[in-house]
């Protein structure tokens, strides 16, 4: 923004005014649409054990942020950890997303509150008992009927009033929403025809319904119908291929969701028909 010439600034102001015309609360930046905080599962790290930390987003009603595959629009939040020497962060565990939007543009993301948690590990020689000094730079885009980009520098400083139980509860709630590996008894395969992937899941007991969330963009048509059909040993989901899919793929990765707290990671080998 600093680099903008005068004309650019005038233009930006005009854009903002027009974009927000008729909205009394509209000139607020992205931060007013959500609160973002760095929290941890425990008051101290235990030697040899990872300390779970997380970026907690609390969104105003109607606003959303995005899953690791955002779907047709938007982008996932990006977290850049700033850790003491000797500490490393594992990957973010993305909770089960919801399908957002309707019509021809469909996204995957979160409304309300979401915790993006990751394990932090210290060097084994370190006898860490107190909370390490951690911070993170977070970039995100928050959308409703409009999108607002935002960023935050957040530091781990402990819960208000020392209420560690409240923070721990948020981690426990989130763990219950994390996708799990598909049960070993499941057999998941996919058949590719010209316009569809037909995902077959052999699973007991019979599920009354299921939906698929693709891990990679540009594989399935996000706004396409997902036709569910019970089969003798499980069910079948017929997914429309994305117009952006130009090369054959050998595996379809994503989540099979049977209900809240029941998201399963699958990697279906694809055979052509």
């Amino acid at each position: 923004m600093v680099l903008l010439r005068r004309r650019g600034i005038v233009r930006l102001t005009a854009c903002a005014m027009l974009a927000f015309a008729g909205r009394s609360n509209a000139q607020s930046p992205g931060e007013s649409r959500l609160k973002v905080e760095l929290i941890s599962d425990q008051a101290k790290s235990s030697p040899g054990q990872p300390l779970w930390v997380g970026v907690l987003f609390r969104l105003e009603q109607g606003w959303h942020i995005y899953w690791q595959n955002p779907g047709d629009s938007g982008e996932p939040p990006k977290v850049q950890w700033d850790l003491p020497t000797g500490f490393v962060a594992g990957s973010i565990r993305w909770p089960q997303p919801i399908r957002l939007g309707s019509g021809s543009v469909v996204d995957y993301g979160y409304e309300g509150q979401v915790l993006l948690m990751a394990p932090i590990r210290g060097s084994s020689s370190r006898n860490a008992t107190s909370l390490p000094s951690l911070s993170a730079d977070v970039k995100y885009i928050v959308c409703r009927d409009m999108c607002i980009p935002g960023k935050a520098h957040i530091t781990l400083s402990g819960p208000a009033g020392g209420d560690w139980a409240a923070w721990h509860a948020l981690f426990e709630q989130t763990r219950a929403q994390l996708p799990r590996p598909a049960p070993a008894s499941w057999k998941v395969t996919a058949v590719s025809d010209k316009q569809h992937f037909i995902l077959s899941v052999e699973a007991r007991p019979q599920a009354p319904g299921a939906s698929f969330f693709p891990l990679e963009p540009s594989q399935i048509d996000n706004s396409g119908p997902q036709d569910f059909a019970p089969t003798q040993n499980g069910f079948r989901l017929t997914l429309k291929k994305s117009d952006q899919l130009t090369k054959p793929i050998s595996t379809l990765r994503g989540l099979i969701v049977l209900g809240p707290g029941r998201a399963f990671e699958v990697a279906a080998p694809i055979t052509s028909r």
């Binding site: 629009s73 938007g74 982008e75 309707s102 543009v105 996204d107 959308c143 540009s218 117009d243």
Partner: peptide
């Protein structure tokens, strides 16, 4: 590269 994934805001179509 004739097909890529478009990125941006969703097009604000009528509901």
């Amino acid at each position: 590269n004739p097909t890529t994934r478009p990125y941006g805001c969703s097009v604000k179509y009528a509901d």
